[in-house]
Structure formats: structure tokens, C-alpha cells
Design a protein around this nucleic acid. Structure first.
Lengths: 151, 151
DNA sequence: GTAAATTAGTTGTATGTACATATATTTGCT
DNA sequence: AGCAAATATATGTACATACAACTAATTTAC
């Protein structure tokens, strides 16, 4: 559906103005869908994102610092998101022996298995349906990458 | 900058997978910029968005219900966002005489003037720089509109 | 004409976002 | 060695997001 209909507005002054509202709106739409899908695993999209970052280095530990650097939102509070994953025993934390300020974060066996389950499920049933083909996705990626080059 | 560099990952399996992370990431980037810009007016982007919706009907009042329907995020709590705008005296509220369940929301003189100031400022100094031209913006809008057609 | 269903809005709780400030540890300088 | 600056993380507060449960007013259905 066109954004004008979604937001019940009468139209936009120009495509540029529409584009940035469209990115915000589409992201909310996506985020909502992803959260809904992840509900069955009792994870939020940021928690899942952190799990993926940590698994990326498995079996090596990751410092909290580098989790922050790879998150979608840089102003998030990695401490608190990791806290919730620790409570669910999906991760383990340990003070880094070579730098006692830093924290070594790793997936627990439970966390590793959960990620495996999710992988299998995602492949059999796309979390985000493929309405755009690879070429179209590429065009969109290039435009989004450029949009962020402002300044 | 390409998303791979921003997130310090080694690449994505395909453009489709990259595309949805890209929309989420770009939206956070945009939202952050907009919030930063609006800081000078002591508004958040959702507060500004509600102000715009209410001004759209000025001088007619708007029901809280229709504010919710036009917001970027449908699960937001319009009550609380409007509450903050009422505290700042940028809006007025009144029980609707013809349906006492509903609330009539209007901009106050102060609110109207603030929006005027912001308009003037936005035109002289783009809140979001124009890196994409109108044709490119249109391509992106069409792709985003289609992306949301999933299901 | 009244009970049941619907609608509009409010309130509460958990999580996330944005940012300022605090604490502990390490590094660099002299 | 001694101390200032830098770094990694934690904590506190305000606002936003997600959703469930609640109150009050209005429609509808009989």
C-alpha cells in the first residue's frame, strides 16, 4: 500500500520528503513483524541481534564494547540487553583476564541451541517474505547506503 | 558508507537479507538525526509528528483516535505523547460534546507559532540533506511501498 | 428500553532509546 | 613510581514502544 494511504494523508510535497517518512514507517512495520515472529522464542529483535553478533565469534568470547559497535542502534545500552540474555541463561559473562575492565561474553549451550532452532525455522518459513527480487533489493540497498552519506 | 562497514560484518548471504537490516539501520540513523535536530525545540520526533498531524486539520480539532491512526508507530501511546505536549502548553484538549468518549485536540497559539518557526527553519536548512534526487527518491519509495505489501 | 457489544481513552508493566554521570582499570607521561 | 587521561562498563532518569487490563460512553440488538 502507498504511504499516503497508510498514513491517511493527502500526499507529500515531494518524493524526497516522502522518502524519509517512508524509511521510518517501513522500519517500524518491519520491526513490528520481526518482534512478533521472535515472540515464540521470547526474544526481542535487539536481543536476537545481540545473540547473532555473539554467535558470529563463537566459540571466542566478545567484549561488550564490540557488541555495542555492531548493534543497529549505537545509543542502546548493551549492558541491559545482555543482562536480560544472562537472566535467561542464553549467555555467560566473565571478566576478561587480560583486561579486567572488559567483559567476555559467550553463548551458553542453551543459547547456541536456541539460535540453531531459530536458523532452521527461519529457512523453512521466511521471517520477512521475499517480495523484492535480488536486483530490486540491490537497488534499494545502494539507495539506502547513499542516503546515509549525507554530511 | 556500505552497511557491511557500518556494522563491521563480513557481508550478507544475499541482498534480500541485507535489505531488511538496511531499512532498520537507516531508520535508526534518520531518527537519531531528526531527534538531534528537534532538540533545539525540545521536541522528540514522535511529538513533532503528532504536532504535524494536529496542524493538518487546524483550526478543526482532531480526535485522539485519528492521531493514533496517522502516527508512524501504531502501537505508540498517543495519550502519553499528547500529555507531554499538553504540559508544554502546545495543545489544548476538550471532551468532544457530540461524543463524550472522544477528546478534541487542537494546537494552542503557542503550538501554532512553534510549528511556524520550525517550518521557516526547515526550509532554510534542510533537516535531512538531499543526497537523493527526486527520481531516485521515487524509486526508493516504490520499493519500500512494495516491501510492505508482503502477505 | 435495557443488556451486551463496541468504541475511545487511561493506566500499568516490561523493554528499549538517549544521554549524563559514576566507578574501576589500564595506559601514557614525567 | 605516581598521577592524569583514556577506556570499559554500570547506573539513573526521561521518554518511547508493546501490549494487557481497565473505565466510561455510545451503539446495537433483542
Amino acid at each position: 500500500m502507498k504511504l499516503e494511504e497508510e498514513l491517511q494523508t493527502k500526499g507529500f510535497d515531494n518524493e524526497h520528503q516522502k522518502a524519509f517518512l517512508n524509511v521510518l514507517f517501513t522500519a517500524e512495520w518491519l520491526r513490528y513483524r520481526i518482534n512478533k515472529w521472535l515472540d515464540q522464542y521470547d526474544l526481542t529483535h535487539e536481543q536476537y541481534n545481540v545473540m547473532r553478533i555473539v554467535r558470529g565469534q563463537h566459540p571466542n568470547p566478545v567484549h561488550l564494547k564490540s557488541i555495542t559497535e555492531r548493534m543497529i542502534n549505537r545509543y542502546c545500552n548493551a549492558t541491559r540487553i545482555v543482562d536480560r540474555l544472562l537472566e535467561k541463561e542464553l549467555m555467560t559473562k566473565q571478566t576478561c583476564p587480560s583486561d579486567r575492565r572488559a567483559l567476555n561474553i559467550k553463548l551458553s549451550d542453551k543459547g547456541l541451541q536456541l539460535m540453531g532452532d531459530i536458523d532452521a525455522h527461519i529457512q523453512s518459513q521466511d521471517m520477512i517474505p521475499r517480495v523484492l527480487n535480488e536486483d530490486e533489493s540491490k537497488v534499494m540497498n545502494d539507495l539506502l547506503d547513499r542516503l546515509r552519506d549525507a554530511e
